[in-house]
Write a protein that binds this DNA or RNA. Sequence first.
DNA 1: CTGAATCCCATTCGATACTG
DNA 2: CAGTATCGAATGGGATTCAG
Lengths: 124, 124
Amino acid sequence: MSVSFEVTRARPGVSGGKYPADCPTRVVLNHVTSRWGVLILLALEQGSRRWGELHREIEGISEKMLASTLRTFEADGIVHREAQPTIPPRVDYSLTPRGQEIAARLLPLMDWITDNADDIVSGR
Amino acid sequence: MSVSFEVTRARPGVSGGKYPADCPTRVVLNHVTSRWGVLILLALEQGSRRWGELHREIEGISEKMLASTLRTFEADGIVHREAQPTIPPRVDYSLTPRGQEIAARLLPLMDWITDNADDIVSGR
DNA sequence: CTGAATCCCATTCGATACTG
DNA sequence: CAGTATCGAATGGGATTCAG
């Protein structure tokens, strides 16, 4: 299969490389690290969530940003959306396998931040 | 009314927790995942860099954002700034131990993104 | 209940020009 | 070289309204 290019810049992984502006990497990175992206992924990492649950759990997010971030992730194949055509409607969001891989790599970061945020913010 | 939450601590790491809007965690998370934060940290993870090197290596970043992101990280104790009072001036940036801990947790994420970005963006 | 659509303001971001 | 100053543009995000 012609091997996805080492072109993506003959680099040994990210380490050692540059960060071309036009790289798909940038797009995905921006989605994941978007203002609410990490929080949504971490919430879903703990299991499927309904719209309202996400809205409540992620304090401060507006309906607009929750909707648009979820749609972006759905298009990326990171989040799965399952709507039940009932009344009232019920929609569940969950991570796809791909989303789970990302979330798994986000957990160590968040745990570290959780442990150190107080010190950092208070200038220690 | 104080209410200094031990709440923030009462949880078993992030896993299982909520994400209070006023939590220092949010502040740090927003710094790290700011538009250029991750790229700067990963560039510095490979070693000390001069201003101009960072500017060249991180394609697309404006001088303004490079300056302000670096200052934020410096205030957080994540990046160390060392200026030599020479002419022309020379300023080196490097990760503090704290910054290295963060960067170490960013590498697995970036490596995964590097490996999968093409598929995601092209809709596979 | 789960959104989509619209309006509008605040903040962020980027390009350019300028300085020690 | 390493920034700062400024300004206009883009984006984020709140509030409200509407719909299935």
